[in-house]
Design a protein around this nucleic acid. Sequence first.
DNA 1: TTGAGAACTTAACATTTGTCAATGCTAAAT
DNA 2: ATTTAGCATTGACAAATGTTAAGTTCTCAA
Lengths: 195, 195
Amino acid sequence: MAVILKNLLLNRIKPLGKLSQEEEEAFLGILSEESIGKGDLIFRPGKMANKMYFLLKGGLRSYYIKNGEEITDYFFFEESFATDYVSYFGDKPTEFYLEALEDTLAITYDRAEICKVAENYPRFQKFLRIHSEMAFIEIEQRMRILQNETLETKFQYTLSQFPYLFQRVPQHQIASYLGVKPESLSRIKQKKTTG
Amino acid sequence: MAVILKNLLLNRIKPLGKLSQEEEEAFLGILSEESIGKGDLIFRPGKMANKMYFLLKGGLRSYYIKNGEEITDYFFFEESFATDYVSYFGDKPTEFYLEALEDTLAITYDRAEICKVAENYPRFQKFLRIHSEMAFIEIEQRMRILQNETLETKFQYTLSQFPYLFQRVPQHQIASYLGVKPESLSRIKQKKTTG
DNA sequence: TTGAGAACTTAACATTTGTCAATGCTAAAT
DNA sequence: ATTTAGCATTGACAAATGTTAAGTTCTCAA
């Protein structure tokens, strides 16, 4: 695996403080590289999402099907972690599909393996804790916006979070991510540019 | 502090495995008991929510004010943890009020202190991680329901989560928790009992 | 007991979003 | 160039929610 790529991920665990040689090796030892072709499904409902993906290139989308329609749960792009956290944290089968929006390159590790590393090197417990805490903060923001902002605000917020989103994914996927129908999203967009 | 009460909280850290005498004492050493009178504000916007509350009795509500109206962010009741996790995890001032819905009794600890304990006794890193992971799972469920369920389903789900909710808090607070106006909640309730 | 204020309900109307259908656009395949 | 399929837009109408206002119930304090 290219050293440059690993460094990207290593930067993410800097908050832990300086790693010993042994710690760094234990961590690097459980990493794998994974190439995912556009349209490939990484997992599907009923499977365990017991793997974390750190995206180097490309994008993923988690979604599920309700009344025959896809509902997008989340988008993931470069330099962020991706999985179904509910399955991953809760050790239960996922309810989602995780699909590659584009050709994607990721570094991955297994939940079980990082937990084992963390048992041996407590520093990594802290990494896992902070990772989980940051994930919480992000979803809490989204929850609040879904709870009581107008569609226009939801739209703006999503754009600020993923500026490139409309260039990279079809609009009806964004609509369900926002909890509305594609027609409603069209209306809002038009209102913005016209008004 | 009554031993029985501490035991309630100690049960929560059982997943860590058996604690040594030293570990247990370090943990108990940072706990305080706190009585909060109905209507009291535990914190308000701008303050650090750097304290975790484990509720033994009573209930809390976090809310903020938008366009002159209170928006309820969350309800907390007996035997659950309460704080503003965004402030607590992110070490940033909170944007919420945290108010006692009833006379409330809680065991509390400071973020800084539990983190210190965790630095000395890595087992507690795991506790903090799992706590954060469970909080994530809960909010992700709520987010999904806010995202794309009907108001009636949101209503049902909330009832199943807090069966006693309507006996304990005013309905307009529940309405804003669900992201609708009180009148809409009235309508749904009537529809349920009539139809 | 009474009165005042808050909360809940209900109804009429306004706004937003959903539904359905038609149209146009774009990109891929031939 | 033509066709095709999927996606986005638009418009008309339906359904859900917001808004406003009125009336009722409930609580609590005097």
